[in-house]
Design a protein around this nucleic acid. Structure first.
Lengths: 341, 341
DNA sequence: TTGAAAGCGCTAACAA
DNA sequence: TTGTTAGCGCTTTCAA
């Protein structure tokens, strides 16, 4: 049996309450007693029993708020699902989760939601922040009130958030480069289509991809990066032009959305399955493309985890006082073919 | 706040003990009362609070035994690590885990350990079973005493084990085929090196690989499957011969151990990085090969999970009465390149 | 067949 | 500064 508070209390000749206060620095304990208790706990190898802690703390009803942007996109839908799933699990632990979703990326709307949640008296906040100074300001204000803030999917690194949960885009880009190098000939041509040139995540994925590819396969010719603004119609046209100009195109790296336009153009040209396509995220439509063989490999950002993890981190902090080890909590980079979905 | 036993008891006008007995079919409750209680619980959407359950049950000290074969191999070492990690976590919940490892695959030794563990009074058993009738017999005997048995890494499907935790080798083989088809030209030559021809897992990985490859890339020429008995020296020679006979060899699928012999031969012939190599499991040495670029892609069977998951499943069953949904619990098929380790 | 009560390990309000 | 106590939700023993 593991060591308990009670045992320590008996050995130290004090009450359990005192031990609890001493070990958790809750004050109201004389330094000498605190020191003695801590020493005994150390010697006995005491670890608080998480189940007991959880049960005791379940008394106070805690509330966590979560705000999700662009919730209608396929990927963010999965993020929301992950959040809902976590919310159900947390409910059984007595933690209430309030979800607010918005269709667009709108700092004003987001501010309104932030105010609403704060008024509801949340004990923690998870958010996909708009890249805007007023949001950053607001998050700092919230953090300063002692309410932990976790950003996810998108980050605001200069804010006083507790941590960020999301993908390491640079690493994802390099991973894509490694795969592309494995799949196309050493003198092949590879095109890159991205979403927005000034989106931080998209840019990171593209530059890392290009740099790494140049480094490991200098013979491969990389065509200029082209943005499709996350639109399939635009990506479709871009791909048509690419195929016309470069009939020997060997691979396409789609760093953001637009992959379906790319696939459509490839099919029309009868080049699907020939041109290697690397795209992002396991969404229902992407799964179809994978099954058809038009997309070769998907890099997944484990969207579900991006929805659930922030809530769990907040719960751990609020309920158990556990602070995340790093301020960046990168979710895995998972590779999917049609065979290991 | 979620519905509690107490609330149901109040509404039903009975005690908490009675509600508990009624809802969990522990007997000693009149049918009418039981029925009424169940109805109320149903209406209120009652879900037992897992934290409360765990705390209450933590009173009885439970013990789980785990037996690991071939524990010295790189992969099984990771499995053992996973088990040890889980054991530490379980210890904090008051669950004791007894680990027994053996170097070889030895049914007699395994029997001895089984007897030892049974005498220690274990409440659950996890085991990598030797493929032997007496082990099967013994496991059935244990299962019939009401002690749940989980096989992992290797299975004994005809036994009355509760479930198996491990990789879906057929799927892994198909995944490898899909990747190989993406990496080598449509008229390339691919070789398969396996461990033992009569090892169930190895065979499954190979046949699925060949079948799938023939199906999706009929132009690819597959050379006959050759066993290396999991030995690097043997695999080294096989590879040398392969390279001599087929200077244009495009890919090698290594379905079991021996990959380092393969890599060595490739390096000597200056074909490393040219010939695509798919191998199994994220072990330290494999990571090196991946980094060097000699192995192209690793298929991981998430060995760590194979060590921890069985213990968690047993804990869930013993402590919470949760039975696994399926009798096969496949761990993921994870793809690793040097970039997403 | 049922109820009462103790107890799992911990927290926190209150009293001293 | 310290101790006492109630209670989180559930299981289980003992009496009735």
């Amino acid at each position: 049996m593991a060591v308990t508070l009670k045992q320590i209390a008996e050995i130290a000749g004090v009450s359990r309450g005192t031990v609890d206060r001493a070990l958790h620095d809750r004050g109201r304990v004389s330094p000498e007693v605190a020191e003695r208790v801590r020493r005994i706990a150390e010697e006995l190898g005491y670890h608080p029993n998480a189940v007991g802690q959880a049960l005791a703390r379940s008394r106070k009803q805690i509330k966590i708020g979560i705000i999700v942007q662009s919730a209608e996109t396929p990927t963010m839908k999965i993020v929301v699902e992950g959040a809902e799933q976590a919310a159900r699990a947390l409910q059984k632990e007595g933690v209430e989760v309030v979800i607010r979703t918005m269709e667009s990326v709108d700092a004003i709307q987001e501010m309104l939601y932030l105010d609403e949640l704060m008024e509801m008296g949340i004990h923690g906040l998870a958010i996909t922040p708009a890249d805007d100074a007023i949001i950053c300001e607001k998050l700092n204000e919230i953090a300063d009130q002692g309410i932990p803030v976790v950003t996810f999917n998108a980050d605001l690194p200069q804010s006083r958030r507790m941590c960020f949960v999301g993908q390491d885009n640079a690493r994802a880009g390099r991973t894509a480069a490694g795969l592309m190098a494995l799949m196309v000939a050493q003198d092949g041509k590879v095109a890159t289509i991205t979403g927005h040139l000034r989106n931080d995540g998209h840019r990171m994925r593209c530059t890392s991809f290009s740099e790494e590819l140049r480094c490991i396969a200098p013979g491969i010719m990389t065509l200029p990066i082209q943005p499709c603004f996350d639109r399939d119609d635009c990506a479709y046209e871009l791909t048509q032009h690419l195929l016309a100009e470069h009939p020997d195109l060997a691979g396409i790296y789609v760093a953001a959305n637009g992959q379906h336009g790319v696939c459509e153009a490839l099919r029309e040209a009868g080049r699907d399955g020939k041109v290697r396509v690397i795209a992002y995220d396991v969404t229902p439509q992407n799964i179809d493309e994978l099954r058809q063989g038009t997309i070769s490999i998907l890099i997944d950002q484990t969207a579900r985890e991006q929805g659930s993890r922030p809530l769990m981190l907040l719960r751990d902090f609020i309920l158990y006082g556990r602070r995340p080890e790093h301020s960046f909590c990168y979710t895995g980079i998972t590779l999917k073919t049609r065979y290991n979905l």
